[in-house]
């Protein structure tokens, strides 16, 4: 994930480079460092450096990392010929390197030659069975082939070893949500919350999963996690506010007819959330205010 300040810097540099202000190499370095995915720009500016022998030789040894970056960007943009050239240059320079081997595997992937790519990765894994990138490539490949069950299997195998890798947990959680396996997804989100307890997005996603699972207990828990998202974002997260409203309504329906003293506190929170939502809409999107107001009225959250 890219922080807001860094993203602003990246965008500034990008517009500078786009308008011919120079600094292409700095831009490429920043993209690399942040792990941003701007393949088209990287391809364009990277190629302009690589095609200029003077600029290229000025980079020194960094030339080869640029080749790698451009190759990956080209694969992302389906410019297979360009990628092929870059990878050929790299394998001339570094014969037998695992890092180049990965690129060759990715080239096969881009051509959708799945069996060959699989073979290439298997060969690389013989040399270094604990290579995280290759293991993740296999997951990505399973996903690209439209086979989430296999991706889940690979990811689980990966997480058995690298169990502190939270990006992998997030990926697994998202796949589980897509497969509607909410219990498993909830487990993954719990793991993410444990790993980084102050990231509001994980609290929000966990609450979503719990709400989707349903049942009084789950929804009460979901409400707590929506509340904690509100707490972590200072009430700026619209989705969390909606979540609080819905949780309040559903809890009200589920506990209807039971003893009343439990119910006493719950509508308070959701009506507060509803008011906060309305205020937010009034400020930022007044034309939709009436829609939201009628909806809230239908849910009996505001009078």
């Amino acid at each position: 994930m890219v922080g807001a300040a860094e993203e602003a810097r990246l965008n500034r540099l990008e517009s500078q480079v786009d308008n011919g202000g120079g600094g292409a190499w700095e831009y490429l370095c920043l993209v690399q460092k942040l792990g941003a995915r701007r393949s088209e720009k990287v391809l364009k500016h990277g190629l302009s450096i690589l095609n200029d022998p003077r600029a290229r030789s000025r980079l020194g040894v960094e030339e080869w990392t640029l080749y790698e970056q451009v190759a990956i960007a080209a694969l992302d943009c389906q410019q297979i010929d360009v990628a092929k050239e870059c990878i050929a240059a790299l394998s001339m320079k570094f014969p037998g390197s695992i890092r180049v081997g990965k690129l060759e595997g990715m080239l096969l992937e881009a051509k959708e030659a799945w069996a060959d790519a699989e073979k290439a990765y298997a060969r690389l894994l013989e040399d270094s069975p604990l290579d995280q990138v290759i293991l993740k490539r296999k997951v990505a490949m399973a996903k690209a082939q439209g086979n989430p069950a296999a991706a889940v299997e690979y990811l689980n195998k990966y997480l058995e070893i690298f169990m502190a890798d939270h990006d992998a947990w997030r990926e697994l959680a998202e796949i589980y949500v897509n497969l509607q396996m909410y219990k498993q997804a909830a487990y993954c989100y719990e793991e993410l919350i444990l790993c980084q307890p102050i990231v509001p997005l994980y609290h929000l996603a966990y609450a979503d999963v719990l709400y989707t699972m349903g049942g009084l207990e789950n929804i009460q828990t979901a409400k707590k996690y929506y509340a904690s998202t509100v707490n972590l974002t200072g009430g700026k997260n619209t989705r969390a506010l909606y979540g609080l409203c819905l949780c309040g309504v559903v809890i009200g329906q589920l506990t209807k007819g039971r003893n009343k003293d439990e119910k006493a506190e719950s509508p308070d929170m959701s009506s507060l959330a509803a008011k906060a939502l309305l205020k937010d809409y009034k400020e930022r999107s007044p034309e939709k205010l009436s829609l939201v107001t009628t909806m809230m009225k239908n849910m009996k959250l505001i009078s």
Partner: peptide, 17 residues
């Protein structure tokens, strides 16, 4: 920790409203 956080969130919302 969540029940406590819930109370804190309520305060935040009150302030916001």
């Amino acid at each position: 920790a969540l029940p406590k956080i819930e109370q804190r969130a309520e305060q935040i919302l009150r302030k916001l409203v």
